[in-house]
Amino acid sequence: MAKGFVCIQVERCKGCGFCVEFCPTRVLALSSAFNSKGYHPPHVVNGEKCSGCDLCGIYCPDFAIFGWKARASEGAAHAG
């Protein structure tokens, strides 16, 4: 059961990889897909490990990702 979630706005991403590298629970990986500008945005690979710490959001230079903590009732319904 995930304690938090991330929201990725793929089109804003420039593929720097900061969120992937500095995620403390290794939730993210760079995807092999492209966005319309030709960058590889991150995608969620370990959604259940996300703690919602929002460190990805604070590192992102392009404001393309953010995380938030789940409230007690909503964890099970939205894992990943």
Partner: peptide, 22 residues
Amino acid sequence: TAVVETPVINPVEPFLRMDRMP
């Protein structure tokens, strides 16, 4: 079934001129 309240915008967006992004 729990209702998931997704924050629709990045918390920093109110402080940025998003029309100028990227």
